[in-house]
């Protein structure tokens, strides 16, 4: 039942939009994938922005959380103080989950739509028939042209394996790290290496059409991150100004306020800063 609703409301419209874009964009399915990915990411940008804002707010109050962790040894009291800080700062720790959960099915549908619209076997084309709307403009377009820039979009491609790895890594690097906990931070650093490797491994088996989607998706993600957080290494200021978390009324510290400024909010490894420098700054 849920699967049928998912197919009817999300996947089928996306499959048809892909085929429509293919027709509009000179029968090039590669261009259709690029346009489609950018379009969907733009439509869901408000959700992405909200998620980025919440993440950034969380980053801002991390020094205070660390102070609380040091100050209180009783876990219950510690939790109470942290929750109090969240309340006073106007930050909802689960706030980034909502937009993320909303985007997740969209991303899955997007990924499936690319796979379905690009049949790699006669059976897959047969299956596509059940997803296409009864509109001759769409029906006449299938099967779509499989080649893009001399590549067969149905087959894995080594260039895309590399691009998937690089763009996933770039997205990780431009994503803000919420925690200041050393152990979690080191795990995240490891994930920054593991995730690109993992997705590059998947790309070895993906049709390159799916990899193309992933690469464009990651590039758009990197762009959003830079627009929101800026990129100090290249002296790029954020375009979307984010409100800093509200300062707790009584316990606001000057150091905390300073840490929430745009300049000090930094990406995972701190763009332009070494890991050692990051450690030194921590109270």
């Amino acid at each position: 039942m849920i699967g049928e609703i998912f197919t009817l409301l999300l996947m089928n419209p996306m499959v048809n939009l892909l085929v429509l874009l293919n027709n509009v964009l000179f029968d090039s399915f590669g261009l259709a994938i690029i346009a489609f990915t950018i379009l969907i990411r733009l439509v869901t940008f408000p959700l992405t922005l909200r998620q980025l804002h919440v993440t950034r707010s969380m980053q801002g109050i991390q020094p205070r959380i660390q102070e609380i962790n040091k100050k209180y040894s009783d876990p219950k009291r510690r939790q109470e103080e942290v929750m109090k800080l969240y309340r006073e700062s106007g930050v909802n720790p689960l706030g980034c989950l909502g937009p993320m959960l909303l985007q997740f099915p969209i991303l899955i549908a997007l990924y499936n739509a690319v796979r379905i619209a690009l049949p790699n076997s006669p059976e897959a084309l047969e299956k596509l028939s059940s997803h296409l709307y009864d509109w001759s403009y769409l029906q006449h377009a299938v099967p779509v042209q499989e080649h893009f820039l001399t590549m067969d979009l149905r087959e894995p491609n080594l260039l895309f394996v590399v691009l998937v790895g690089v763009t996933t890594w770039a997205q990780s690097k431009t994503t803000v790290t919420v925690t200041t906990d050393e152990r979690v931070r080191s795990q995240q650093q490891m994930m920054n290496i593991m995730l690109p490797l993992m997705f590059a491994f998947f790309a070895l088996q993906f049709p390159s059409g799916v990899s193309l989607y992933w690469v464009v998706n990651s590039i758009v993600g990197v762009t959003f991150n830079i627009l929101t957080y800026g990129f100090p290494a290249l002296r790029i200021e954020p375009i979307f100004k984010v409100r800093a978390p509200r300062a707790p009324a009584a316990e606001i510290q000057p150091t905390t306020a300073a840490l929430t400024s745009d300049r000090e909010l930094r990406t995972t490894h701190g763009s332009g800063r070494s890991k050692r420098q990051n450690r030194r700054r921590r109270p």
Binding site: N120, S121, P122, A124, K127, M198, Q205, P207
Partner: peptide, 17 residues
């Protein structure tokens, strides 16, 4: 997780007719 993800990305394989 690797094999699980790998299974998820499987495309419709040729069966023949």
């Amino acid at each position: 997780c690797l094999p699980v993800f790998a299974a998820c990305v499987r495309v419709t394989n040729p069966d023949g007719w």
